[in-house]
Deep mutational scan, measured.
Amino acid sequence: EINVTSHGEEQAKHWIELAKRMNLDVEVEIHGDKIIITIK
């Protein structure tokens, strides 16, 4: 399980695309200006 804290939408999209390509599950939480991505 990987937790990524992203401070930008572009960076977040990059991680989500990467996870989808690798067929991994992704959870995205938004806390103000921080985007927390959990890849399982």
Rank of each mutant, 00 (worst) to 15 (best):
L18N: 04
W15K: 07
I37Y: 00
D33M: 09
L24A: 03
I37E: 00
E27L: 11
I30Q: 02
E10D: 12
G8M: 14
H31W: 13
N23H: 07
N23P: 04
L18M: 05
V28N: 00
D25K: 11
E10T: 06
D33E: 09
H14M: 10
L18H: 03
E9D: 11
V26N: 00
H31Q: 08
Q11F: 14
A12I: 15
V4H: 06
I37Q: 00
N23G: 15
I35Y: 02
L18T: 02
E27Q: 13
V26I: 12
S6G: 08
E29Y: 06
E17N: 01
I30M: 04
E1L: 10
K40G: 02
V26F: 13
L18Q: 04
V4Y: 03
E17S: 02
I16T: 04
H31M: 09
V28W: 05
A19F: 15
I30F: 05
E27I: 12
D33L: 06
K13H: 08
R21E: 13
D25T: 14
V4Q: 09
N23A: 09
W15R: 12
T5V: 07
A19S: 03
T5F: 01
V28P: 00
G32C: 15
E1D: 07
L24E: 01
V26S: 01
T38S: 03
H14Y: 11
V28T: 01
N3S: 07
G32Y: 12
I39N: 01
T5E: 08
E9Q: 08
W15E: 15
I30V: 09
I16R: 04
E10G: 06
N3F: 09
T38I: 10
T5M: 03
K13A: 07
D33W: 08
I2V: 11
G8A: 12
D25G: 04
L24S: 02
K13M: 10
K20T: 08
I37T: 00
G32W: 11
Q11H: 11
E9R: 04
W15Y: 07
M22L: 13
N23T: 09
T38F: 04
I37H: 00
Q11A: 11
K20G: 12
I39S: 01
E9K: 07
R21Q: 11
V26H: 00
T5Y: 00
A12C: 15
H14A: 07
I37W: 00
K40I: 06
T5Q: 08
K34P: 01
K40P: 01
H14Q: 11
R21F: 13
I16V: 05
D25I: 15
Q11V: 08
M22E: 03
E1P: 09
I2Y: 02
E1N: 09
D25M: 13
G8V: 14
S6M: 09
T38M: 04
E1Y: 08
I35S: 00
I30W: 06
I35N: 00
E10R: 03
S6Q: 07
G32R: 07
V26T: 01
H14N: 05
I16Y: 09
T5I: 14
I16L: 12
K34A: 06
G32K: 07
N3W: 11
I30Y: 06
K13N: 12
G32T: 06
N3R: 15
E29G: 03
D33F: 10
E17T: 02
K13S: 06
I35F: 02
I39H: 01
V28R: 00
N23V: 15
H31C: 15
K40N: 04
I37M: 02
V28M: 04
E10Q: 10
K40C: 14
H31D: 05
H7N: 07
G8Y: 14
A19I: 14
I36A: 01
I2T: 11
N23F: 14
E29D: 04
H7F: 11
D33S: 11
E17A: 03
A19V: 10
S6F: 08
I30T: 02
K34R: 09
E1G: 10
E1M: 13
T5H: 07
T5K: 10
Q11G: 10
N3Y: 07
R21T: 09
E29S: 11
E9V: 10
H31E: 09
T38E: 02
E27D: 07
I36L: 04
E17L: 03
L24G: 01
A12Y: 14
K34C: 12
R21P: 14
K40M: 06
A12D: 12
V28S: 01
I39P: 01
W15T: 06
K20A: 11
M22W: 13
G8T: 12
G8H: 13
D33I: 10
N3V: 14
T38G: 01
N3H: 13
N23Y: 14
L24Q: 01
K34Y: 13
K20D: 09
V26W: 07
E27W: 11
H7E: 11
D33H: 03
I16D: 14
E29I: 12
A12R: 06
M22V: 07
M22I: 14
A19L: 15
I2Q: 11
R21M: 14
I16H: 04
K34F: 14
I39W: 01
E29F: 10
Q11E: 11
G32D: 11
I35A: 01
R21V: 14
H31S: 05
I36S: 03
G32A: 08
N3A: 07
D25N: 06
D25A: 10
G8E: 11
N23W: 15
E10I: 08
I39E: 00
G8F: 15
M22C: 15
W15D: 15
K13G: 08
I36W: 03
T38H: 08
S6K: 09
H7Y: 10
L18C: 15
K34M: 12
T5A: 07
K34L: 14
